[in-house]
Design a protein around this nucleic acid. Structure first.
Length: 376
RNA sequence: GUAGGCGUAGCUCAGCUGGCCAGAGCCCUUGACUGUGGCUCAAGGUGUCGCGGGUUCAACUCCCGUCGCCUACA
């Protein structure tokens, strides 16, 4: 459950606490994405070291492989993957969106081809919730319909209607069948249309949810529209609910969204960027595979205290990545996840100390996108 | 020694019977990646076409010579 601790006076940033079956964490918070039940390249031990508050796992992927039964037999997701902090399970709504060539969506649910073996599978909103209950997730996220932007009003309205309808069905089913202490979030849709977003929020709250997911953003719209929409949503949403901006974002994005009142984030970026050879630093994004790193003896980030930065040079990491050694991905992923946690810590501290605006300004002036070799 | 083949971008090669600015893949360089299919996508660079002659309006493409490498037979 969410507890609002402090509201920033200048921006809409806020400090809070959220409690689940697996502990309490402070917000703003960032959950790395462990789609298939593993944060790519990082062990649980390392996650504890970093101080990760939780993970986002994808029920759809686990449903396909290894199958929910296997995990149930192993005592639930936490035991299965040996992680005893908060786990949020995403439903697969986004996969329907991003793997769109192979699905058919109706009010009853989704029919799609497995991305693994091509088998036709049908999932109703109840099926998804049952899977999440079987996983013993801390927070269940229901099936939704995410559309790409720009979208016509009618298109956004239809997706919203279906998402809200599914939320109601899912919530009812969840209440009847849930495990002890399980929480349920609802997803706000509605594209960039304010009246639709409003209907979405009011509908979810009426349905009864433990938190609000902000969905359907960062799917093709401009930054201006994105933040206008986000700001409208956080104005409309009751401050007693945690606001979870799904699938977002890069460092600057998170700071901007925090200042507009978002509390929780998940994003693949720290681990995906590690796999494609980029590291986050207080000076910007360092593309490790770029030539200037070849003879660079400095750590990824000269101001970072992580294991990777304390022990390895850019030159070595570039070598590992260029010759495809998995260690390169592991060390870089560790750094990126650690760095994201540091960013979150700084955001929290600055809100607590009434200097979030200053921190934001300072961060943005130091953080430049791209330009590998120039990062000092 | 004889016969045949090959020599075109850093690498592996494509360029038919001569004719628009000599190409591809890889590598390399630089971008992009936001509820993750260990990727993918976009843009970019590189060549005295082994060397020297000749034929022709025109040669990477034909002819002669030369150098280097490979294979087969002796």
């Amino acid at each position: 459950m969410f507890k609002l601790i402090k509201q920033d006076k200048i921006t809409k940033a806020r400090l809070g606490e959220f409690t689940t079956n697996h502990g309490t964490f402070t917000t703003p918070a960032f959950f790395p994405v462990a789609t298939q039940g593993a944060l790519k390249g990082i062990t649980t031990k390392e996650l504890y070291e970093i101080g990760a508050d939780g993970l986002l796992v994808n029920a759809y992927h686990l449903f396909i492989r290894p199958g929910i039964e296997v995990i149930k037999k192993c005592g639930g997701l936490h035991k299965f993957m040996n992680f005893d902090k908060t786990i949020i399970t995403d439903s697969g709504g986004y996969q329907i969106f991003s793997l769109k060539k192979m699905h058919k969506i109706t009010d009853a649910g989704v029919e799609f081809q497995s991305h693994v073996d091509g088998k036709t599978i049908f999932l109703s909103p109840q099926d998804v919730i049952q899977a999440e209950i079987d996983l013993k997730t801390d927070v269940a996220v229901p099936l939704d319909e995410c559309i790409k932007l720009p979208a016509a009003y009618e298109t956004a309205a239809n997706a919203l209607r279906r998402t809200l309808e599914w939320a109601k069905i899912s919530r009812e089913y969840f209440e009847k069948n849930k495990h002890d202490g399980g929480l349920f979030f609802g997803i706000i849709q509605g594209g960039i249309y304010r009246d639709l977003r409003k209907i979405s929020i009011e509908g979810l709250i009426k349905t009864g949810v433990d938190g609000l997911c902000i969905g359907g953003l960062s799917v093709g719209e401009s930054e201006d529209l994105r933040y206008n929409t986000l700001s409208f949503i956080t104005d409309e949403a009751d401050s007693r609910y945690i606001r979870y901006f799904m699938g977002y974002g890069k460092p600057r994005d998170i700071i901007e969204a925090v200042s507009l009142g978002a509390d929780l984030f998940d994003c693949v970026v720290p681990t995906r960027y590690a796999r494609t050879g980029s590291a986050f630093t207080w000076r910007g994004e360092l593309v490790i595979r770029n030539a200037p790193c070849a003879g660079d003896t400095r750590p990824l980030d000269t101001e970072c205290d992580c294991y990777t930065c304390k022990n390895y040079s850019r030159a070595y990491l570039r070598h590992l990545i260029n010759v495809n050694e998995i260690l390169g991905v592991q060390l870089t992923a560790y750094h990126n996840v650690f760095w994201y946690k540091s960013l979150i810590n700084k955001i929290r501290d600055s809100i607590a100390q009434d200097r979030f605006s200053e921190f934001k300004k300072e961060f943005l002036s130091n953080y430049s996108a791209a330009s590998c070799g120039i990062i000092r």
